[in-house]
Simulated scan of single mutants.
Amino acid sequence: MTGDDAPAAVLERLELTEYEATALAELLALGRTTAPDLSEAAGIPKARIYGVLDALADRGYVKIIPGRPKHYQPKPPERILERAVENERQAFERYRQDVEAMREEFLETFEPMYEQASEDVTPTEELFWVVDVGEPSEEETRSLYRNAEDSVSVITKSFEYFERVEPALADALERGVDVDVLFLHPSHLDESNRAVQRDIVAYVRETYPEVDLRFSREQLPWRGTFADPSMDYETGRAILLVEERDVPLSMRQAAVTENGSFVAGLERFFELVWEYEATDPDAVLD
């Protein structure tokens, strides 16, 4: 990306066409101008420039000033971003209303088909499904926090991904969800991970004192997060990653499960380590 086309490329992320992004970028640089002058400056054919400017005006990014000739003036960048969000909100609301309008017809059409196809089929529950480590696994973790009702338990080396799940964790705490975090003892970490862990632990203790923290003195065979386990095996959801030292993180996958029995087993493992093999932060950090 060159310096000349970088602003237009940023604007394309607002779901603008190439011509629209180029025109708006040039207009922001020029200020108030006419369509022919903008056409020449931006390299957009004159046959297209009026349609492009009308589209930008319809989105609320450009003000049309009547006259002979008409002038076009860009809205301030902050206002453009506000309009972009509002446009998406309105589009989603229209989509939601369209879906609601078709709900009765949709269900009347497809529910009998689904029920007929499901007859005489023995239901089976998928024990696991997998997601790539990184943004997909972090989104599953955020979803777990967002849907938790009673408790969330975390097993982690250093909680290095904390910043990316923090808003969801904070929301869970606001709803009264109990959060326990079991770290791997820093003696099992290299210096880089120890530093990350030290900073995260200090931040969590100061910002979220209601979160309980402990450190496992022994190595842990897996890392992950699980929520709302029950000993009647009826509820629970988890995402976990087994220890694979020789496999790069970018090539690994995390397992997700909603099997209540399995999540209850994870909870039992967590409780045993927490009670008998873990120590509190003061004993580690002092």
Rank of each mutant, 00 (worst) to 15 (best):
M1S: 14
K75D: 06
L220C: 05
D58L: 04
V179M: 00
Y161I: 03
Y233E: 10
I65K: 04
T279L: 15
W274A: 05
L241M: 04
R245V: 12
P45A: 06
V273D: 10
G260L: 07
Y72P: 00
R13M: 05
D98T: 15
R198I: 03
L27R: 04
F128E: 01
V256P: 00
G3I: 12
T33E: 08
N259T: 09
N193W: 09
R103D: 11
N87M: 05
E277V: 11
V10E: 14
V284D: 02
A170S: 03
Q253P: 11
V154R: 00
E277G: 09
R59D: 09
V99P: 02
D280P: 15
A168D: 06
D98F: 09
S151C: 07
F183Q: 01
Q73P: 00
E138Q: 15
R223F: 14
L144Q: 06
F128L: 00
S137I: 00
Y145Q: 07
A283Y: 09
V273F: 03
Y19I: 03
D199I: 04
F215Q: 10
I64G: 06
A195F: 01
G134I: 05
V62K: 02
G3M: 14
D37G: 11
F270R: 02
E126W: 13
Q197T: 04
F269K: 15
K157Y: 10
D282A: 14
A195H: 03
A55H: 06
T225R: 01
G134A: 06
D5F: 01
V179L: 01
L127Y: 10
Q219W: 14
V204R: 00
E267T: 10
S158W: 04
S137G: 04
L173C: 02
E40Q: 10
A57T: 06
E119Q: 15
D120M: 11
I200Q: 00
A47N: 14
I200S: 02
Q97W: 05
M251T: 12
L53N: 05
D120T: 03
W129G: 04
E111R: 15
T207Q: 08
E111A: 14
T34N: 09
Q97G: 13
E86M: 12
P7W: 13
G60S: 08
R13L: 06
F269I: 14
I49H: 01
